[in-house]
Structures are given as structure tokens and as C-alpha cells.
């Protein structure tokens, strides 16, 4: 049986931003995964740092759970600063 090596997920950080999922690469070990990610996803100066993670360790939420996972946050508006009424004239708050 042929092997195309293992699948890795690639996350790229550009300057001080968050690590963003860029795509995946195949590689047999972590060093190769890093180098392949570099050669595949940063050819146009897209990145200053790379994470690679074996695809088999990524756990994804189920679409069927989306309602119970994410909808309960909808009415918790007190978590946002705009919820609060500030006295007229107060500065730098």
C-alpha cells in the first residue's frame, strides 16, 4: 500500500496577529511538517510563525450541537460594554 505520509493542519501567524488556519500538508514527522508548511503557505511573506498539528488530534464540534453550543450566548448582552449606561459627561471610561 502506498503512503502519502500523515496529514497535518497548518496555522500561520503574521506578525503579532492570531494564528489562522491556512490549510494542511502531508509529512512524516513534525520537522518535515513545519518545513512543508513553510514551503507551501509562506511563499509570499504570509507568515512569521507556524504551528503544525497532526490532523488526527483536531477535535471539531458537531454541526448538530450548534444550537446548544452557540445560541445560549445570544441573550447575554451584559457581556458587552455597550450594555451599560454611562453618566453624561464621564470621560475615558
Amino acid at each position: 500500500m502506498d503512503t502519502q505520509l500523515d496529514l497535518w493542519e497548518v496555522f500561520i501567524q503574521n506578525k503579532a496577529g492570531s494564528y489562522v488556519h491556512a490549510g494542511s500538508v502531508h509529512a512524516s514527522d513534525s520537522q518535515m511538517a513545519l518545513q512543508n508548511a513553510r514551503d507551501t503557505y509562506t511563499r509570499r511573506q504570509e507568515g512569521t510563525s507556524i504551528w503544525v498539528i497532526p490532523a488526527k488530534y483536531v477535535v471539531a464540534s458537531n454541526p448538530e450541537d450548534a444550537e446548544m453550543f452557540f445560541d445560549p450566548a445570544n441573550d447575554k448582552i451584559y457581556r458587552h460594554p455597550t450594555f451599560y449606561v454611562m453618566p453624561e459627561g464621564a470621560k475615558q471610561i
Binding site: 502506498d2 502519502q4 494542511s24 500538508v25 507551501t40
Partner: peptide
């Protein structure tokens, strides 16, 4: 650089295809 991009694009697309539950080995086969 152009041909390298094409290789890269093949790679992105194989990856997209692999999310549908088929491996690159099978695709090449």
C-alpha cells in the same frame, strides 16, 4: 515560481478533497 504555485494549488485542492473522507493515496490511485 508559477509552476510551484500550481503544485501548491494541487496541494490545497487535494486537502479540500480529503475533508470529504478520501485520502490522497486513493485520489492518486
Amino acid at each position: 515560481a508559477k509552476i510551484q504555485d500550481e503544485g501548491g494549488h494541487g496541494l490545497y485542492l487535494y486537502s479540500a478533497c480529503e475533508t470529504l473522507g478520501i485520502s490522497r493515496e486513493e485520489l492518486i490511485d
